[in-house]
Structures are given as C-alpha cells and as structure tokens.
Design a protein around this nucleic acid. Structure first.
Lengths: 205, 205
DNA sequence: GCCGTGATGTCAGTTAGTGACATCACTGTA
DNA sequence: TACAGTGATGTCACTAACTGACATCACGGC
C-alpha cells in the first residue's frame, strides 16, 4: 500500500478553504488545517509559504495576461492591448464564478488577506508591464498602461462580484474600460452627458 | 525626576529606522528595537500594531489628498481634480526627500513591507474615492478615477525616486498624468496629441 | 534483492503578537 | 500635606506562525 494518501496539496487547499469559510481566517490555525488534511503542520509549509498563500496559489491569470498581451494584433494602441488581454482573462474567473465569489468573501473579511491580494495584483502589473515592453512600448508608458489596466480590472471585478444583475465579467471589463476612456473627456461632456456614467452601479464599500 | 525618558514613540521610530537600514527589516527583531529605544517589547506594540507599521505611521498624505479633493474648484473633470490633489500632495514628499528615499530603500528590500505599502496606497484610493463621491461623482466613476489617480501617482513616485536628473515630484506627476490622458484618450486624439515626449511604439489604428 | 530518492514525519527552536495584571511618578484636590 | 486616581510603562505567561536539521520508508530502477 502506498505510504500516504495522495494529493496532500489538494487536501490542504480544501481543508483551508473550508476552515477559513467556517470560522474565519484568523481563527483557524495551520495546525487545524493540517489535521483536517491529515498531514503535519510541517507539510503545510512545504506546499505553501505561509498561511495566506493557500488562497493565492492557483493563479492562471498571470499566464493568460502575458500570453494575450504578447499575441494581440500588432499595431494596437496600449489601451486596446489591455482591453484585449483583460477580455481574454475574464473566462478564468467566469468559469469558476461560485468558487471565486466564495474566495473573495473570505478575503474581504480579512485585512491580511487583502494585503496579499494587493501584492498579487501588483505582480500582475509587473507581468503586464513586461509584456507591454516586449511589444515595444517605452518603460514608463508600459508601466502606466499596466497600472491603469489592473486598476480598471479591480473596479470591474468588484462590480462583477457585487453585481446583483449577474452580468458577465467581460461586460463589466468592457464598460469599465470605456469609462476609463471617458474620464479624460472635457469637463462639459463629463458633467453633462449621462451616458457617461455606468449603468447599474449601486454599491461601493 | 520623571519616571521615564520622554518620547518613547520617537525613540522607537528612530531605533527601528536605524536597525532596518543597518541589518535589514527581517534580521532585526522587535526586541532589538525596544532595547535600543530603552523600552520593553510590550511598549513597542503599544505604539505600533506590528513590526512593519513603524514605517507607515506618519502619513500626512491622506489628509492632504482629502482636503485638496474637497476644495478643488467646483466644475472640474475628475482627472483635473485628481491632478490638483496630487499636485498639492507632492510637497509632503519633497520636503523630506532624503528621508523618503531612505525609507523607500528599506521598503524596496522587503516583500512584507511592499505589501504593507500597497495596503496603504489602497487606503488612499478609498479616501480619494470617498472625496470624489462627496463632489457628486457616481460611485463607479469615483472609484475608477481614484484608482487611476493613485496608479499614476505610483508611477510618478517611482520615477521620482529613481530619477538621476532629480526633477521635482510635482513635475513627474504632471508628466505622468499627461501620459495618462494620452493613453486613455480616443485613438485618433492619442495619435494627434502625440508630441513624442515618451518614445516607443505609438502606431495606432 | 539492494539502493537512492522524494514525500512526509519528528523535534526543537525563534520570534511576532496579545491579554492580564503590577508599578509608581505625576496631578489635582480636600 | 495627604491621598486618590490616572496613564505610561513594565512583567509575565502564553499562543501560533514559521524554520532548520535530521529521520523514515514505500517505491521505482537496476
């Protein structure tokens, strides 16, 4: 017989998610997670750098963003490239909507986890900026476009998570990027035109 | 005689800064900081929530941003308000340039500190967004403008810190916001207003 | 049938962070 | 002057996150 049950990592992830959901992140100890997964605490730390990292491991997003940025049609304005990349990335979330929402609820309940999430988003900024530089953008423009792209993504994602109308994430991304373009419109337009504001926004914490 | 030397907090800040600079953040223990400041570890934690927080306490920035956003001229496009607010905030850094650079070097050397810094920036986003809502912007536009504002600030700040030419932070902010306008403007305009100040691939269809 | 390897366990430690309670110069007040 | 209350600090004991070093032993190759 094999010495240990297979997929220790999977069991740890599952156990952690359940416990974080159940009693909150702070209140669960690594010892508990390990016990539920039937491994030792030490094994937990072999798979995850720290208690938070369990929630941030499976990150296909970086790859998708990098790839989509690299393969976007060649002569395209930076913001169009971003639009393309983020749109490509949307399915990553939409395919596991329920899981994503659950995970986000856990994160929203804990400042330490929010910090880690911000760090992950910052690393996405780096990746995006790098990919944009590869496309020939100068470093500053690349950095700026990447920051703005992820900023727009944050807003779109937030709207998606809290959207009672259950619109597509892709749709929120499109709308948010349109709003981004409109932000620089002359004062008269910005103030006067009502189609300048996005439909269906009711919530911000 | 008074029971304790005055300004424990100040001594702790100073001790922490020196040690972080000297041996790095990770390698210094709270016990060492406390010892150097001639207080106990417990006292450290009475002043600072955790080992990182020493570096992030004195934050006049939030106030300045909120105030400047609130008092900006009334009928102004969101991005103009942001421009005004960030420009007002610049002196906060410029007045203590050397200290700021030193602090930033410490932060740059440690991921945990970078996380905390991102969290602080995120709280600035909240504050900015709130102030913009107070000005009558709808929540989504406010959130987006705030995100973009802070994103631009990050880039400008980074450029300032690493600027061998020692330009003003205010100047970097202005340039970065101009670049932002160019990035987010409709494609035709982007091409038309391209004065070539940021070289690179700019072909737009 | 032996050998190396990799995933896991065991153990002993360091350090961050917290709660509960003690101390005692200072301040105001009778 | 005496005395009570307060607030900043100290003391102590504890939990839990993380780490390094070394042990174990099924499995797969040779």
């Amino acid at each position: 017989m094999s010495r240990w049950k297979p997929d220790a990592r999977g069991r740890l992830e599952k156990a952690a998610m359940e416990l974080y959901n159940d009693k909150g992140f702070e209140a669960t100890t690594v010892a508990e997670i390990a016990a539920r997964a039937e491994v030792t605490e030490r094994t937990f730390y072999r798979y995850f750098a720290d208690k938070r990292e369990v929630l941030f491991q499976a990150n296909a997003l970086a790859d998708v963003l990098a790839r989509a940025t690299a393969t976007a049609a060649d002569p395209l304005a930076p913001l169009e490239v971003i639009t393309h990349a983020l749109t490509e990335a949307a399915p990553v979330f939409e395919e596991r909507a329920e899981l994503v929402r659950q995970r986000q609820a856990v994160i929203a309940a804990n400042p330490e986890l929010q910090e880690r999430e911000l760090a992950k988003l910052a690393s996405l900024v780096s990746i995006l900026a790098h990919a944009l530089r590869e496309r020939g953008l100068d470093p500053t423009t690349a950095a700026l476009a990447a920051e703005i792209g992820i900023a727009a993504f944050k807003v779109a994602f937030d709207r998606w998570i809290n959207d009672p109308g259950r619109h597509t994430l892709a749709q929120h991304i499109r709308e948010t990027l349109d709003a981004t373009r409109r932000l620089t419109a002359p004062a008269e337009q910005a103030a006067a035109t009502d189609d300048g504001s996005l439909p269906g926004q009711e919530n911000v914490t």
